[in-house]
Amino acid sequence: MMYGYTWDLTTPLTYAASILPILLIGLTVTLQAAAAGFALALVLGLAFALLRRSRIKAVALTTAFVVEFLRDTPLLVQLFFLYYVLPDYGITLPAFLTGVIALGLQYSAYTSEVYRGGIEAIPRGQWEAATALNMTRWQTYRDIVIPQMVPRIVPTMGNYLVAMLKETPVLSVVTVLEMLGLANMIGERTFEYLVPLSMVGIIFLLLTLICSAGIHRLEKVLPKAGIPLR
């Protein structure tokens, strides 16, 4: 029994039906972690990309170093560090929040590269026109560069969203009760792993298919020229 649901091992089908509610509870955790982590990665990645283009050398170099560090160290190491080391320095974060931060930080390193590529793909003439109109760098990013960049980066960002979604089970190592962790616990108690693990696999497959379809749709809907401004 878990979360008030008891399993029924009569047949694989009854077993599956009886543990589905438990896995769906785990699924909501998975979805929340992926959504929050991805939102963080999108915001932080953009900040990193812009800071890396700063004309102040020290800022650009420090950012480049941080991004490189985040990208080149395993997610698991970052996760353990946040969860087990930070409390020694008086910072104790709930497991779920730790997971979201770790996912967000790691993926912000990837998304910042995507943003960077997107920004560099904006033709020079756009920057020059903005300069000739006396717009500041910030105004140029906000109104000219970013709206035009978005349609170009959606496909790659979509891939990272799917990748992050599939990596959320890592959070179970810091006691976040997401879907795979719960399936594993069910297996430990029933000695019957096949059904719960298969279900998790299928649910992930469905999730990524839905995500990919959504991103494909978004690509279709967004005008190639950029987010329209009237």
């Binding site: 756009q126 035009q148 005008p223 950029g226 401004l229």
Partner: peptide, 8 residues
């Protein structure tokens, strides 16, 4: 020209 393509 360098008009902004995403703007009316």
């Amino acid at each position: 020209f360098n008009l902004f393509p995403h703007m009316s």
